[in-house]
Amino acid sequence: MDVQVLRSFRAVAEGATVTQAAAEAHLTQPALSRALRRLEREVGAELFQQVGRVLRLTPAGQVFKEHVDDVLDRLDHGLRAVRETVSPESGLIPLAFLHSLGTWLLPSLITGYRERFPLARFELRQGSEAVLLRTLLDGTADLLLTAEDPGHALVTWRRLLVEPLWLAVPPGHRLAQRRRARLAEVADEPFIMLRHEQGLRAVTEALCRRSGFTPRAGFEGDEVATLRGLVAAGLGVSLLPRPHSATPAGRRAPRYLQVTDVETTRDIGIAWLTSRALPANSRRFIDHALDHAAAVAEQEHVSAQEQ
């Protein structure tokens, strides 16, 4: 069987049109249609059925696709391993990361790594914790930068940093002129929170319970930046990491207060599949991330002593 035809089969099975798959394979649409019919003859069963204007997998096609996915994934991993053996300095690192880490931790990690290995390449994906965990489990990503231990039996997780969370309130809020506050002081106010599939949502709810109340959701969003904007607009309060860059001039920003009645932090870590033998570049990136985190912690310790 032709590998490119198998790749085109998978593309069509996952929703691409034959025309789109043909363009990706640098074939004409009739040529790919003929190739898919030859594939069906080799398999001995119809793999697609026409539903309206699109092709859908038959039951036989669904079974076949599971094995095609496995074959192509193994082949791609093998090709990648060969490339990294021939040119170890230019290997690819498939890395998934949490939205809120894309503005500060991820750029510094990549910059530092590429200073040592300038030819290294990254394949990046971002999303919620649940989405990112799936990319790790299905082999799409080698590594995952996330908050909190995923707690999955197949995953190894190492803490990199402990990130403080602050009580974010609107600029005109009754607590806005203070530097510290108890979380319990906003128990009756609406909380601007991430959706339930996001780890920071669970952290927020757990910390509020420790402070003696259940937070009332005023809005549920997908990204920390959205939460900051809605807090600044006066729609509620939130528990958030402080931004790692200055707010643009003229834009309203929340006020950030240190919480005194409970310890408000979240763990930031790196994860990978325990049973998988990682390529050399991904193993080096883990070591780099751990070294970077240790250097940041040491710098913060020195700064605290100087103060």
Rank of each mutant, 00 (worst) to 15 (best):
H152I: 04
A120M: 10
G112M: 09
L207P: 14
R125K: 15
V162M: 06
P170D: 06
D222Y: 05
V169P: 06
Q177L: 11
L133Q: 07
R121I: 09
W157H: 04
G172E: 08
D138T: 04
E129R: 11
H173W: 11
L124C: 14
A181P: 02
P215I: 01
L124M: 11
T140D: 06
P164W: 02
R158P: 00
A206D: 14
A181W: 00
L143K: 01
L167M: 14
L145E: 00
I192H: 02
L154M: 12
H173P: 00
P171H: 03
E115T: 13
D222I: 10
E163N: 09
L119N: 13
A202H: 15
I110L: 13
T135M: 05
P107E: 10
V169C: 09
V162N: 03
R116W: 10
L154D: 09
F117A: 13
H152A: 07
P170H: 08
D142E: 09
L183C: 02
L200T: 03
R178C: 08
L145F: 01
G212D: 06
R134Y: 01
A120E: 08
G139M: 03
R195V: 15
G151V: 09
E205W: 00
Q177I: 00
E115G: 15
R174S: 12
R125Q: 11
T214A: 12
L154V: 05
F213P: 07
H196M: 01
T111M: 14
D188V: 07
L133D: 03
L207H: 14
V131L: 04
G221A: 13
E163L: 10
V162A: 07
E148S: 08
F122K: 04
T146K: 10
D222F: 08
L167R: 03
D188R: 09
R158V: 04
G127F: 13
R125D: 12
E115Q: 14
D149A: 05
F213Y: 14
S108R: 12
D222S: 13
P150L: 07
Q198K: 15
G218P: 09
G218N: 11
L137Y: 00
C208E: 10
F213G: 14
L165A: 07
I192L: 15
D142W: 01
L161T: 00
A181V: 03
E185A: 11
H173R: 08
V155D: 05
V155A: 02
L165I: 14
P190S: 11
P215G: 02
L137S: 05
P170M: 06
P150V: 03
L161M: 00
A120C: 10
L143H: 07
Q126H: 10
L160Y: 02
D138L: 00
T140V: 05
V186C: 07
A168N: 02
R121F: 08
L175P: 15
P215S: 02
L136V: 06
S128V: 06
R209I: 05
L143Y: 06
T140N: 07
A141I: 00
I192G: 01
F117G: 05
A130D: 12
T111R: 14
